[in-house]
Design a protein around this nucleic acid. Structure first.
Lengths: 333, 333
DNA sequence: CTGAAAGCGCTAACAA
DNA sequence: TTGTTAGCGCTTTCAG
């Protein structure tokens, strides 16, 4: 700005950055000049010297051996991603920092992302990895860029992460279903190669075992609505007398509800249904879905917090933070 | 990088930026040195001189007189936003440019956004305005920052925008329903203060008028599933003999379908249903929803393209681009 | 076709 | 407490 505030640029810099040791009168004068001229510091110049951008990356990374659709619409359209983005933005915004949205689904785009990060465009990264085979977490670790993951990586990697107690969630569902009086339970699991699915299933099975149900029929889905439909269809064919189901996410539960209705089974009268996530899909179900709440927004905020401390303190040790799931009781069970 | 490539930094710069007039042998030498040292140019330094950041903002702006929820989850979770983000990222990514995700819902956050943009953090902005009362478009225009809107602003503002032919979409739905043999039509509109809702309704009504149906019962919703339920409930109460419905978006159609089933009406047997958007909700419906496709991804890509030309050519005239909707026929009509 | 030198706007030592 | 002085790493005239 016009150093016409009558002082040196150093002083202006000091008041803008809130460094004390500036005479109050001068501070006032500078502030007025700023307001008057509408001066805004140039971020590029600032970053050049501070080596901080005040920006972080929010990366969604899929598997993608080769190429996928040009429009990653269905990824961002996933209510789950929306909640993550909302949580991150909600936490970061008051701090005046905003995330850069990145998407990597192929080896090339992964390299592109890494290259971008190495340009010093961001101070750190928050990574939501969709696939077990994703190599980006490792690439990030190798680049020793401050980063935080959503969910425990399939293979151990020295990066901090945030996760929910999947086993505890499975147990919550089991206990509720049993307490409700269900006797012939079944479950629709997520894809069994992802840790979260395994853990939800294990938690459910273990809890059922202690309730005296050592064997629980299980159909594997892939977290999509149609997969929930076919899983329910199969379960019903093999065990027509089912009276309670735990689906590993709300979308599959929604699909299951659809076929239950088709078969004339009332919910929760004939069969009770418990989902997982407490996503918007849970509310779109009829009846509204009883579900295990996955506190995604809070977790996303925590990712932001963790990332910031990693950025501030480069030597901060790798950390993980596990959130407790809770049961949200609505009408389906 | 180690200017140990044996040349001056100026030459390295030229090679990196693909400026001709560089001896091929030297080019090779430099490239090797780059590969060897893993050199990456510092973006901040670059931006400082070029006055370009290679970054744009993707802003979601709501109304918000005062404050809203700390987590803008439901906004980003909206499948509509997901499609926009996907389209923008899909177009920009091959160009190596990524969007910064911003969210403004209160006057304060709007100012914060503007301040951020004025810091020179981005070259331009793509704005998805959720509310009619949003003042951000005007603020952007006043700041004369390159920007493109999604959808025509309620009040005329000198900013380029991209939109779909809402009227044409309404007509598509009307023609299809009539061709199918429906005689007693009704419609569920969106909030009538937003131009898109008005236009979809008008297009539908006009087309119905030419088909000899001058009056069409209409219930107003707000684009949410529950609002679709109550609207359908009302329509059914007042006009029990309805045999065809046009809902102004898929979510409301989904809600309407739910109450239709509750009332024992078969779809499309007893009543046919046409939605609008062709969002993921259309596929989640049972039966799958016949709907007017809103080519959101393509529109988002076009926003990127338009923004880029505005950035390249600051004097490029304000432009609008209207996309044609198409009918996607599935099972509900 | 290539190198030297200036300078983008800011922060941070260092002096005063 | 404030001003002066160096750069931060790059692009870009301007010479050569």
């Amino acid at each position: 700005m016009a150093r016409a505030a009558g002082v040196s640029r150093a002083t202006v810099s000091r008041v803008i950055n809130g460094i004390r040791n500036v005479d109050l009168a001068i501070q006032e004068k500078v502030k007025q000049a700023i307001a008057l001229t509408g001066y805004v510091p140039n971020q590029a110049a600032r970053s050049l010297v501070t080596r901080r951008t005040g920006t972080i990356a929010l990366i969604v990374s899929g598997a993608g051996g080769s190429q996928e659709s040009p429009f990653p619409g269905h990824v961002f359209a996933d209510p789950f991603f929306g909640r993550v983005a909302g949580g991150v933005v909600g936490f970061l915004r008051p701090l005046g920092i905003y995330p850069i949205l990145m998407f990597a689904d192929t080896p090339e785009t992964r390299d592109q992302v890494i290259a971008y990060l190495r340009q010093g465009n961001v101070d750190g990264a928050i990574l939501v990895s969709i696939s077990t085979e994703d190599t980006l977490p490792k690439l990030l670790a190798d680049a020793s860029l401050p980063a935080v993951l959503f969910a425990r990586p399939a293979r151990p990697i020295p990066i901090s992460y945030v996760d929910v107690g999947h086993r505890a969630g499975g147990k919550l569902a089991a206990d509720h279903l049993v307490a409700r009086g269900c006797r012939r339970l079944a479950t629709i699991s997520g894809p069994l190669d992802v840790p979260a699915s395994q853990d939800r299933l294990a938690g459910f099975q273990e809890a059922m075992a202690v309730h005296g149900h050592p064997y629980i029929p299980c159909a594997e889905g892939n977290f999509t609505l149609p997969s929930g439909e076919v899983a329910m269809e199969r379960l019903l064919a093999e065990h027509p007398d089912i009276d309670g189901v735990f689906a590993a996410n709300d979308l599959m539960a929604q699909g299951a509800l659809l076929v239950l209705r088709q078969h004339g089974r009332s919910v929760p009268g004939d069969v009770a249904m418990v989902g997982f996530d407490d996503s918007s899909a849970a509310l779109a179900c009829r009846p509204p879905l009883t579900t295990v709440r996955h506190p995604v927004e809070d977790m996303a905020a925590e990712m932001g917090r963790l990332l910031l401390t990693h950025i501030e303190h480069p030597d901060h040790p790798v950390t993980s933070r596990i959130f407790e799931p809770t049961l949200v009781i609505r009408e389906s069970a």
